[in-house]
Measured scan of single mutants.
Amino acid sequence: MTYRVRIENADGEVVTIEISADELREKGLTLEELLPPNARIVEVEEVEP
């Protein structure tokens, strides 16, 4: 499974990243732990691999 994640950074700019569930598991991280300081998740969407 892959996630498309929209993130708002500290400057108010919204960027989109895609990350797979396998990648998260391998790194032992959650989506929140990948965020840079002062950023927030705006939207998470599951996409087909």
Rank of each mutant, 00 (worst) to 15 (best):
E8M: 12
A10G: 11
P49V: 14
D22M: 12
V44E: 01
T30E: 06
L35I: 13
T16S: 08
T30Y: 04
V47H: 06
E43H: 14
E8F: 06
V14H: 11
V47T: 05
I17H: 03
I19A: 02
A10K: 09
E48V: 14
P36H: 04
T30A: 07
K27F: 06
R40S: 10
E13R: 13
G28A: 05
V42C: 03
P36S: 05
I19N: 00
N9A: 09
L29D: 02
I41F: 05
R40K: 15
D11R: 09
L34Q: 03
E43V: 07
E26D: 13
R40C: 10
E33K: 06
R25L: 11
E23P: 01
D22E: 12
E33R: 03
L31A: 01
R4N: 03
T30G: 04
V15W: 15
V14Y: 13
A21R: 08
E26A: 10
K27S: 14
R4T: 02
I41K: 02
T30W: 03
E48L: 15
V14G: 05
R6M: 10
G28N: 12
L29M: 13
I19W: 04
E32Q: 12
V15F: 15
V5F: 04
M1A: 07
R40M: 09
R6G: 02
V15L: 13
E18P: 01
T2A: 10
I41V: 11
E43Q: 11
T16P: 01
E8A: 08
L34G: 03
R40A: 05
E32P: 07
G28F: 04
E46T: 14
V47I: 15
E48Y: 15
V44S: 02
I7Y: 15
D11P: 05
K27C: 05
V47M: 09
E46C: 07
I7N: 00
V5L: 08
G28I: 03
E32C: 04
E18G: 02
L35M: 07
L34N: 02
N9V: 13
V42P: 01
L34D: 01
E33V: 03
G28C: 06
D11Y: 10
R6I: 13
K27W: 06
G12R: 03
R4M: 05
I41W: 05
I7C: 05
E13F: 12
E33W: 04
E48R: 15
Y3W: 12
E8S: 06
E13K: 12
R40W: 15
L35F: 06
G12A: 02
P36D: 06
V47P: 02
M1C: 06
V47W: 11
N9W: 14
R6H: 14
P36F: 03
R6K: 15
R25W: 10
D11I: 07
E23K: 05
V15M: 13
E32K: 10
L34A: 13
E8H: 04
T16G: 02
Y3V: 04
E48M: 14
R4V: 07
L24G: 01
R4C: 02
N38T: 05
E8N: 02
L29V: 13
E26T: 09
V15S: 14
I41H: 03
E13L: 12
N38P: 06
L34F: 15
T30M: 06
G12D: 02
N9P: 03
S20W: 05
V44T: 03
I17R: 02
L35Q: 01
E45Q: 12
R25F: 10
E48H: 15
P37D: 12
R6S: 10
G28L: 05
E8P: 00
L24E: 00
E23H: 08
M1E: 03
L31R: 00
V15K: 08
L24P: 01
M1H: 09
L24T: 02
E18H: 13
T16I: 13
I7T: 03
P36Y: 03
T16K: 03
V47L: 12
G12Q: 03
V14M: 13
P49Q: 13
G28E: 05
V14F: 13
V15T: 13
L24I: 08
V5H: 00
R40L: 13
R4W: 04
D22P: 02
A21I: 08
P36K: 02
G12N: 05
T30H: 05
A21Q: 11
P37K: 08
V5W: 01
N9Y: 15
R25M: 12
L34R: 03
V44G: 01
T2M: 14
E18A: 06
N9I: 14
E23D: 10
R25A: 10
T30N: 06
D22Q: 13
S20M: 08
E23Q: 05
T30K: 09
R4G: 01
L31K: 00
A39L: 09
V44A: 02
E45G: 03
T2L: 14
E8G: 02
I19F: 11
E48C: 05
T2R: 11
T30S: 10
D11S: 11
R6A: 06
V47E: 03
K27Y: 05
S20T: 11
V15I: 13
L34V: 09
T16R: 04
E18I: 14
P37H: 10
A39K: 03
E13Y: 12
P37C: 05
N9L: 15
E32L: 10
I7H: 02
N38W: 09
E26W: 10
I7M: 08
